[in-house]
Write a protein that binds this DNA or RNA. Structure first.
Lengths: 279, 279
DNA sequence: CCCACCCTGTAACGTATATTTCAGTTCGGC
DNA sequence: GCCGAACTGAAATATACGTTACAGGGTGGG
């Protein structure tokens, strides 16, 4: 019955401080002083830091209304997570009032978090895989993210041959599986409200030996089970839907990486330039 | 030995990610996604959240150099405590050679500049126009930006009726002009290397009385001459191509504005939710 | 001065958790 | 296509922890 409502545990402690015995109070003060990290230690270490025994700590926790020390720690963690989730941007209603500003701030936070959390090895490995002109490349996304896949495909088609954006109805996707084997690389976009069809498609493709690069949200689409490389992007936005800015960032940065690293890509860009000048 | 180097555990994970086995990597990803709270759970729950077993989690932790799961959790707590001490030390990512960082910084600068430079009257007027359910809406983009138009169309189709993404070859676009009149609204995306076809299409549509909303780069596509509303987005990026992050920001922010302002959109979203629950 | 009560820590207990072992399975290489 | 190595999770084991019972000690009242 203590589930995460607004009242912080610290407030609760200050309120109930009068009911506590002297040594229990010492423990409570120690918790307030080192809030909330002190409470994440074991009861014994927590007690030692406060100069009391473990049972005293337990008794204090019990008096605060927690059914167990574990429940108390869970409460602390929940508080920490909630606090950490809103660093600065989310004032809830209107810190700046302007919706475009609010959206831009959210998108910026997403880009920053995405860039910070994407493992560089995964990113580099994905670039290498996508840059390999001998490996047929397929791109596909979910209902909303498929546009990002199409966007990426349009650019990659300039840089290398054998780039396919898988289109049409899900039932038609599976025809492609006929030609997909160990050499093929599949770039998939899948975020919350994960697409069942996409998951099935990915599983079959993986079983046939295809290498899957997955771009998803931090909760990880189930496709991550069969994906060779996973790149998570942050997506929260002040809107009915999530923002795909992080997905787009990854798509563009991967493309830029291919353009820079692949000699085939450079040659093609040069040739294209010559064609434009009419040679 | 802890505070001296800035090496966070997250960085350490990204560095050692290559040494990890596939399932260990899944666990590592889960940790990065829910950093750092995910690591404060028990090993079993952590593993379950990542879809792997507890021993796999333990093996990953061991490979990161921790002598035990407890030591790992202590490290996380220390990091949390240190982070909490300083409110927000990060002024900005240093000009490191990392390409993903570089791209993210450029994209962030674009979003910021876009949000600053878009006239609010234009933005609000565009939202009102797009939100009007009686006005047939058409979306179209250039070679690369058309994916953004498709993305926006997919979302808007949920919020209102009569949303058309104009597809196919340029020659086919003009068939649409037969049905376009004073009531119609056209959202166009066009950035550098402006599309001739798109310009011609816009001119004809304008002559027939259609209202054009143009999303372009700061140099303004020639379409701006016939557009009712112009929203410029910044696009430079360290790549062969420009970044469309600013375009996407406007597309998403416009969509969010429609979802919030239009009563029709709200009704539709509610109805949709009921349908999902199977009524 | 003694008694009764309340704190408080020690020590024993049971449980939940980390850790290890091991066998099944998969995957890559020859 | 077969073999070997590596990966993975189920089950067994060890350990650390929360929890509880209990006895010593301090304190105020009679």
């Amino acid at each position: 019955m203590n589930s995460g409502n607004g009242a912080s545990i610290a407030e609760q402690i200050r309120r109930d401080l009068g009911r506590l015995t002297p040594n229990e109070r010492r423990a409570a003060h120690r918790l307030l002083a080192g809030y909330p990290m002190a409470g994440l230690d074991t009861a014994a270490r927590f007690g030692e830091a406060a100069g009391v025994s473990a049972p005293t700590v337990l008794r204090m926790i019990a008096k605060l209304g927690f059914s167990s020390y574990g429940a108390f720690q869970d409460g602390l963690k929940q508080e920490l997570a909630a606090q950490r989730a809103t660093p600065l941007t989310k004032g809830g209603t209107s810190p700046s009032g302007d919706p475009l500003d609010a959206f831009a701030l959210a998108a910026i936070a997403n880009l920053r978090a995405t860039a910070e959390n994407v493992p560089r090895e995964e990113f580099d490995a994905a670039v290498r895989l996508i840059a390999d002109p001998r490996r047929p490349l397929h791109l596909l996304g979910g209902r909303f993210t498929d546009a990002i896949a199409a966007y990426m495909a349009t650019h990659l088609r300039v840089l290398r041959p054998h780039v396919q954006h898988i289109e049409g109805q899900p039932a038609a996707w599976f025809d492609r599986l006929l030609d997909i084997g160990k050499q093929d690389v599949i770039v998939l976009f899948d975020i919350r409200r994960y697409s069942d069809d996409l998951v099935v498609f990915a599983e079959r493709a993986a079983r046939q030996g295809a290498r899957i690069i997955l771009i998803t949200d931090p909760w990880l689409s189930p496709i991550s089970k069969v994906a060779r490389h996973v790149l998570p992007a942050h997506v929260p936005a002040p809107s009915v839907w999530d923002s795909s800015a992080g997905l787009l960032l990854l798509a563009e940065a991967l493309t830029a990486g291919v353009a820079e690293q692949s000699s085939v890509a450079r040659d093609r860009l040069e040739a294209l330039e010559r064609l434009r000048r009419g040679e």
